[in-house]
Write a protein that binds this DNA or RNA. Structure first.
Length: 173
DNA sequence: GTAAGGATTGGC
DNA sequence: CCAATCCTTACT
């Protein structure tokens, strides 16, 4: 079994090309105590550009959204409801603010539970997935089928954004 | 400076 | 159904 880290070229593509390829890939986390775990990604959502009213970049380029304007391959984390950190991977070329929200991995079903379980917080903001020593992605070793649905929890964005089928759920083939 | 609200979760 | 909890954003 080949374990190969995903490089920048994987992320520097349109988020709608990257996101459907995420389920099945391994999210690798090396903890401070040296232990290393691999988690298969099961569910993600795509947030695409300043026109997408569900994407935080639609509010403009701010301190919080800054990293989404960078070239793909970095981590975007933010706090929601005062208690949950959301884990996102920036995609696309520089100045195309996009990100993939990781909603579930095997063992942790839900974006808040996932970051709690993997001990991911604000210190991961801007981390480079191609060079980090504590978090990265590796190529998939199994084939997954993808089901597309609407994104969760973004009713405020209105039409047409609430109906975009930009949630990608993977199931083993 | 102040206020409103959220890419969620779990408990009633 | 609804509170928890605090950071980001938009202003009376």
């Amino acid at each position: 079994m080949k374990r190969e880290r995903l490089e920048h070229n994987f992320y520097i593509r349109d988020v709608l090309d990257v996101a459907p390829e995420m389920p099945g890939k391994s999210l690798v986390r090396q903890f401070d105590n040296g232990s290393l775990y691999r988690y298969t990604i099961l569910e993600v959502e795509a947030y695409r550009g300043k026109e997408d009213l569900a994407c935080h970049a639609s509010k403009g380029r701010t301190n919080r959204t800054e990293v989404m304007y960078h070239a793909g391959g970095k981590i975007y984390v933010y706090l929601i409801y005062g208690m949950y950190w959301m884990l996102n991977f920036v995609t696309g070329e520089q100045d195309t603010p996009q990100a993939v929200l990781i909603r579930a991995v095997e063992g942790f079903d839900g974006p808040g539970k996932l970051t709690r379980g993997l001990q991911i917080d604000s210190s991961f903001y801007g981390e480079d997935l191609a060079t980090s020593k504590r978090i990265w992605l590796e190529h998939a070793t199994e084939k997954f089928d993808i089901v597309r649905t609407k994104r969760i929890g973004i009713d405020y964005a209105g039409e047409p954004w609430i109906n975009k089928p930009w949630r990608f759920v993977g199931t083993r083939q």
